[in-house]
């Protein structure tokens, strides 16, 4: 079983008639994702990739059960779209938008927490279980990156995902489930909140975490490892080790202030909890091998 999304998950697509929405809906279906229908206000009656389009999520779920919503709407409409999905009782939501206002993202996460729902994103490509299903925008046809296997991948960065996952594949492994939690300062779901899913997934033997400077998400993972919430091998790669302090390099979520969120601090926390940290992407594969051989 993959995590978050399986080939049985019934996926509704909000913003299905847009350029990206329709293009990636086609690819999601092509990979094996069970897309049941879509929503775009004012476009009810149309079909995209053979899926019916409705004016609202409420109208869509009156005819189709949906377990999950894939949201392809611009950042300024994202909060409303997420609230609309939550209103219809959908508990798994992926939103890719890059540029969601900070205070709205706080509201989105607060609403998800109070509904017991999981919102992944924004500023992400989404999540994929190779050869099974995906919610988001992944070129799963690039074999060098998206080969099926037993390594879970969690990432804050889209561009590094390809770089690091290619090294996992080069070392002879493949990916069970990859989840991009996104590069914003307030992601809808945090690394540590994904750990129980990977822990319970029989297909995942080890976990690769692609992090970066700033924030406290890697430290939270270390804490969960110490508490025994996650007990599988962890290999992390963290970008920004040599980044100058105070400069805003990379994602907005990655600013180093007041000694918190430094890469050194994250490395120490992960190592003290039994994780290993690769200093460059090419080391990730080697370290995985070592850890799995010694298990």
């Amino acid at each position: 079983m993959s995590i978050f999304i399986t080939s049985d998950t019934k996926v509704l697509v909000q913003g299905i008639t847009g350029k990206e929405g329709s293009f990636w809906t086609g690819h999601m279906i092509n990979l094996g994702t069970n897309v049941v229908c879509g929503v775009t206000p004012g476009k009810e009656g149309q079909q995209i990739e053979g899926r019916r389009v409705f004016n609202s999520v409420r109208r869509a779920v009156s005819e189709f059960d949906a377990d999950a919503s894939m949201i392809f709407v611009p950042p300024r409409f994202t909060k409303d779209a997420v609230f609309e999905a939550l209103d219809s009782g959908i508990k798994k939501i992926v939103t890719i938008a890059d540029g969601i206002p900070l205070h709205e993202m706080v509201q989105i996460r607060a609403a998800a927490l109070s509904c017991g729902a999981m919102v992944i994103g924004g500023n992400t490509s989404g999540c994929i279980s190779p050869e099974v299903a995906m919610m988001g925008m992944f070129p799963y046809w690039i074999e060098r990156v998206y080969r099926k296997g037993s390594i879970g991948v969690m990432t804050r960065s889209g561009s590094l995902t390809n770089e690091v996952t290619a090294m996992v594949v080069r070392a002879g492994f493949g990916v069970s489930s990859l989840i991009g939690i996104g590069g914003d300062p307030v992601p809808g779901t945090r690394f540590a909140e994904m750990l129980p899913l990977y822990q319970n997934d029989s297909e995942t033997e080890a976990l690769v975490i692609i992090g970066e400077l700033g924030g406290t998400m890697e430290e939270e993972v270390a804490e969960a490892m110490q508490q025994g919430i996650f007990t599988k091998p962890v290999v992390a790669f963290l970008g920004g080790r040599t980044a100058p302090k105070g400069k805003r390099m990379g994602h907005a979520g990655a600013i180093v202030t007041g000694g918190k969120g430094t890469v050194e601090g994250k490395i120490k926390a992960l190592q003290q909890s039994g994780g290993v940290v690769a200093d460059r992407p090419s080391k990730v594969g080697e370290l995985l091998k070592e850890m799995l051989d010694n298990k």
Binding site: G183, T242, A243
Partner: peptide
């Protein structure tokens, strides 16, 4: 001249290494 925040930051690190 790189693409993506995470990759560019990593290339920056690698050059320093």
């Amino acid at each position: 001249m790189c693409a993506g925040a995470g990759l560019t930051t990593t290339v920056y690190d690698l050059i320093n290494y």
